[in-house]
Design a protein around this nucleic acid. Sequence first.
RNA 1: GCGGAAUUAGCUCAGCUGGAUAGAGCGUCGGUCUACGAAACCGAAGGUCGCAGGUUCGACUCCUGCAUUCCGCGCCA
Length: 561
Amino acid sequence: MKAELAALISSALEQLVSQGTLADVPEAPPQIDHPKDPAHGDLSCNVAMVMAKRAGLAPRDLAQQVIDALPINALIASADIAGPGFINFFINPERHTEIISRIFSERSTFGQTNIGEGRKVQVEFVSANPTGPLHVGHGRGAAIGDCLGRLLDATGWAVQREFYYNDAGQQIQNLALSVQARAMGKSPDDTDWPEDGYQGSYIQDVANAFMAAETVQAADREITASGDVNDLDAIRDFAVACLRREQDQDLRAFAVAFDHYFLESSLYDSGAVDETVSTLVRSGHTFEQDNALWLRTSSFGDDKDRVMRKSEGGYTYFVPDVAYHLNKWQRGFERVINEQGADHHSTITRVRAGLQGLDAGIPKGWPEYVLHQMVTVMRDGTEVKLSKRAGSYVTLRDLIDWVGCDATRYFLVARAPSSQLTFDVDLALAKSNENPVYYIQYAHARAASIRRKAQSALGDGAEAAGLEHLDCLCEPEALTLAITLGRFPEVVATAAERLEPHDVANYLRQAASDFHAFYNAHHILDAEPDIQRARLALVAATQQVIANGLNLLGVSAPDTM
RNA sequence: GCGGAAUUAGCUCAGCUGGAUAGAGCGUCGGUCUACGAAACCGAAGGUCGCAGGUUCGACUCCUGCAUUCCGCGCCA
């Protein structure tokens, strides 16, 4: 509809050029907006204000000339000039309700577009090291990353979801030592407790399982414990498997699935890390100093150079990161989107610098990053900081246990990633109008309920029959709702383009609100047959759009509550 | 000190990348169920968009400076 109007306006501008009123047509298509105030029409255009200066006309005069030059068409009911020179367009009402027929034919695919044209994109998210349970920050990353995957999928990209984890470094060594210490009956208060050891009570559980020689099955491995407290390698393998399994279970409970798990150790095993280092040395972007090997990251925008190989011989963490991202590039991803906590933002410059240093033709802004800010959890008006299980932080599992998967997902994804998030447990728990999740789900359930009643009273075909009577939908509440439904594909496309899933959450609240308002203003089943069927079609379309939107968030759309 | 993010109603947050009188939910106050789900709806009050400049037809949005908060700043990951 926007595009159609834009074409009409362009044609009017060309007409003015041929009359000599304007010198030339602007290169960009005219900008068209949805006004906030319904009195300002359905769509508005600012072209007269933008062009006024060059045309040597007052904006309002130019606006009038544009309106006069518009071709005859079936789209526009009327056009006004308002404010400093806006042109406000009122669309013929039947154009608003045609969308209902489209929703009927596209069903669960309504809202999808093919902007991505099947090109490959990878979304890497969560990527927690297997040293403890997932915490709320990981939960936010899981919700945002999964939703980004769904959005990119819905806009025609070929999406791979990847989870990267460190299974070989110092943190894993600390984990193994902590489990061993627990297995030997030590506690964090003891003087010989490992330095930087993990203190949560889950370490004791892992130690007990190891000593009992249990077998664990994680997504990508199965390990049976040896029970030998002196075998640190066995303890390490077992502990990693245990915590991987626990993270898998948390993610499954959170309705998040990955296509691929990538192990940091594989980069060492395959020689990719050494190869990356020698490529960087060959490219001339490195130097030796203080018995260490440095990368000149400062020539790629970093504020200082970084050590790649420490004087003791080991690599710093960002070297495998560079090798990892080279691997992603070689796998053919046109785009890679890394979803991470904002506390890791300093790695962005280093990874990109390393990739540039490889001279492999990788674009400067590749990969892309979505960073989320911290999450604090509030309950009973105070901040919750401790989890029994993990010790120092609230876990994702805690949240799911308290408020359920749907509410957890909704709350973690409903705010812009760049905003710090306060998770209000009491609000998420409320089964009332205070809770936006239930508000939206309630709209869906209410629509489903009406359709069940219609089905038993009228049988099949009533909704489809309504498509023949959409001109009966003339009340403001019905038209407002239909217009909102029609915006859905644009909302999905914009959210995917901007990598901001919260747009979808906000849209759903609006759609639910418009539906509730329509419901309260007009009877659906108790109406004249033609009107009844038309309204029923609108209800069915609404249910479909809300279901499609909730699906993008990974939140369920219940028929009854 | 340097870098990143943020600052909008009592609280939690949107604000479509520069548009019209800055919006929503919660909370507060007042109304709506003998009809399809009241987990809903309708209305009211509530603002110096952190501060000060600048850019232009027009700034919450862009630029500069300042203030405050959070996060980073290791030959840790």
